[in-house]
Write a protein that binds this DNA or RNA. Structure first.
Lengths: 333, 333
DNA sequence: ATGAAAGCGCTAACAA
DNA sequence: TTGTTAGCGCTTTCAT
């Protein structure tokens, strides 16, 4: 292993000069700097992370807590976090709470000790989490708290646009299959739906109730949707939409001719479904990246353009309509 | 920050005793051990990883390299790795090569520095990877190398059973949509297919060629399958099967009545598809866990029952048939 | 602009 | 069984 000492010896300077040449190039004479970097190249020196971290008191990693890594939504999020962190020279410790809110605090407290900060995706029990965070920088994803920075998808806008799309196709009775009641993002979606409903004349939004945010949820809601007289149904997310699709197919209902179906999130699921789902694209990977960026600013590692307000910045991510094969004009009666 | 010194002082022992009490409890008197652990609890001491790394050369983490975290297959793998590692008190650093074999060596060399060992999932360019591994323990997943331990899914058996299922339904002409030519696991699948083909009289296996292991691949192969006169098609994996389903639906072909379709891997995709895919379940999570276990044995952290042959143990994981809605008896002509 | 030197918190000889 | 001690490779004052 090549160390600072080796480089220093070869370049005939002291180790502190080498250290400076690498981390604060402007504090070293041009000639010296060049000589040092040349030797570094030649010897193939790479700094020992452990040593520099020990010295500086940092760990060089961020923690990420997700409910379920197998859920395509969180897989994408993890991917975004991962890639941005890597760029910034940090590593990511991922903890999977297995959809169990009770695991969160425990996982969190583990992470807190091993990382410089934590990204919390869709936390279920913020209050409990708080206890163990103990001052560690934390960023919330799809959740908000007055004292914490956060990045969330604009689900309200997502619903407004979804309705606009269906309305443009000529639908006037639209059903909504909701997600978990306690979910903050379901609340946002409903707000968007209400907004859209008020905006158009003669448009009816039917609330089908709360369902599990999975395929099963959609399956449970399908007959309700059918019986509601709606010509289009918006699902809480893509998974739920897939469940709808499945039962509708079994009932012999042609999608989109007899019923239009929309998902949300544009996860892999929307592309896998048959017919492919019209859905709202939300940049999950971008959310992951944004969360890392916020963390970086918060902990002052980014030169920082003006530095964030204080601790608690809230960032909202835009959404976009993706039209595929599951929506069409309603059939003339 | 609580350090060893703090604990030592409070417990009235030396720092080395504390260190030992934690990492080699049997080398410390029972009473002392209890006193120390009590103080550790009380003070909330957690070892400084950077320091112990620096000193011991170990990191307490494993690296995992996957081609794509968004692919449900690798997401599950990551989940398995994650959970077993957690149990063993280790953390996981995940690197995503973004399906680009050229990223691998770079990611790997980063990981090698930060981990005690590396798990390589479906590596594309083992030769290049080798250069940077430089003696770090490595476990291959779905790949093999004479000098490295590995765990792979038994894709040969998977195909044998898939064919048996279709055969039992009455199919006699079965098409196979292959994956990447260079893929080792595609070779295994073909071997299984051949085996099965030879085993039954009057059974024809048609090779449709090599396709991208994604939805697009299946879409590309669909018309070929249709034109081949086969009554059933086996796809390289679930994603490819979904692609088939999509085009078949567009062509008005009823699955499974007119064409049976099988996927492979039993990823989320097979459940999301319409109709739900009959597929071969392979315990991907188990593979991840097994890989961690092997690493643990290899690096001698598990008391080890007899210690692995040498460096290179190869473990094979079983498969299982999952029947859903995409297969049925062929229609009488 | 450069060098000397003091540790960061911990592990692992080596002593006792 | 326990304690003493010497660093691991680096950053960072403080001199020069």
């Amino acid at each position: 292993m090549v160390t600072l000492h080796d480089v220093a010896r070869a370049a005939e300077v002291s180790i502190s000069t080498v250290s400076r040449a690498l981390s604060a190039p402007d504090k070293v004479a041009e000639a010296t700097r060049r000589r040092v970097t040349a030797v570094v190249q030649e010897l193939g020196y790479t700094p020992n992370r452990a040593a520099s971290l020990l010295r500086s008191g940092r760990t060089g990693s961020v923690g990420l807590v997700v409910p379920d890594l197998e859920n395509p939504y969180f897989a994408s999020l993890a991917k975004g976090v991962q890639s941005r962190a890597q760029e910034a020279g940090m590593s990511v410790l991922i903890a999977d709470s297995d959809e169990n809110p009770r695991h969160e605090p425990e996982l969190l407290s583990q992470l807190v000790q091993q990382t410089d900060g934590v990204l919390l995706a869709a936390p279920r029990d913020l209050a409990a989490d708080f206890g163990v965070m103990d001052g560690t920088p934390a960023i919330l994803i799809n959740a908000e708290h007055p004292d914490l920075a956060s990045v969330s998808v604009d689900y309200e806008e997502a619903m407004v646009r979804a309705v606009a799309h269906l309305r443009a196709l000529g639908h006037t009775r639209i059903a909504y299959v909701g997600g978990p009641t306690r979910s903050r993002s379901d609340g946002q979606r409903r707000a968007g739906l209400k907004l859209a409903g008020d905006q158009y004349d003669g448009l009816e939004i039917l609330d089908l109730g709360a369902f599990s945010p999975k395929v099963e949820g959609g399956e449970a809601a399908a007959d309700l949707a059918l019986g509601s007289g709606a010509t289009a149904t918006i699902a809480y997310n893509d998974l739920v939409a897939v469940g709808l699709l499945r039962i509708l197919a079994r009932r012999g209902v042609d999608v989109p001719a007899q019923m239009s179906v929309m998902g949300c999130d544009d996860t892999l699921a929307s592309q896998l479904a048959t017919p492919a789902l019209t859905t709202m694209y939300v940049d999950i990977r971008g959310a992951g990246e944004a969360a890392v960026n916020m963390f970086l600013e918060l902990s002052g590692r980014t030169p920082g353009k003006g530095r964030v307000s204080d601790l608690a910045e809230h960032r909202t991510l835009p959404v976009q309509l993706v039209v595929r094969d599951s929506t069409a004009a309603p059939r003339r009666a």
